[in-house]
């Protein structure tokens, strides 16, 4: 499948994403939830536990998911969509939103994994619908942000910062 070159998320869609994450966090009593792109970039987080390290977590979780998926593929498993990492205090459940995003739920022993599985599936379906709209909007909104002035300012900033 051809990968998109970019994805533009508007205010409206981010509000829907945040609301869905918040609902998922409350209903499962999770400590944190995150939506990340499979490239490792963080789209949104809810909950205090992950905020400080969100950037590194995004890169690591996406990497871990991608490598687990390749392991599954080598073992002949075709439909690999979730991973569960179990710790002493905290557990992490990650599920795919179509082929593009990862929904991550961090929870402790007060929450049952069964509940997380069911509710994250529902939330992932909803995120899938938001993703559809994001894709549809991407080409339309992009040109309003990435214009000539933006491009030349970025080039200047790159010259200024990326040097010894």
């Amino acid at each position: 499948m051809e990968q998109l070159t970019n994805l533009v998320i508007s205010d409206r869609e981010l509000a829907f994403i945040s609301a869905a994450l918040n609902k998922l966090m409350n209903d499962t009593n999770a400590t944190s939830v995150m939506l990340i792109d499979k490239s490792g970039q963080v789209i949104a987080t809810q909950g205090t536990g992950v905020r400080r390290n969100a950037t590194s977590l995004g890169a690591l979780l996406a990497g871990a998911f991608s490598s687990s998926r390749h392991i599954a593929e080598l073992l002949g498993e075709k439909d690999f969509r979730t991973i569960f990492q179990q710790g002493v205090k905290e557990n992490i459940f990650t599920t795919m939103v179509e082929e593009q995003w990862l929904l991550v739920i961090v929870f402790d022993k007060l929450t049952h994994i069964g509940l997380v599985k069911v509710l994250s599936k529902k939330a992932a379906d909803e995120m899938g619908r938001i993703l559809e709209r994001v894709r549809a909007d991407t080409t339309r909104t992009k040109s309003s942000v990435i214009n000539v002035q933006f491009r030349s300012s970025v080039e200047d900033t790159i010259d200024l910062l990326f040097r010894d």
Binding site: V8, L14, A15, S39, G40, V145, I146
Partner: peptide, 15 residues
């Protein structure tokens, strides 16, 4: 895949 987040005013690229 670059991510352009209009809501949070962020652009992310991966190299």
């Amino acid at each position: 895949m670059a991510l352009i987040n209009i809501a949070t005013h962020e652009i992310h690229c991966k190299i």
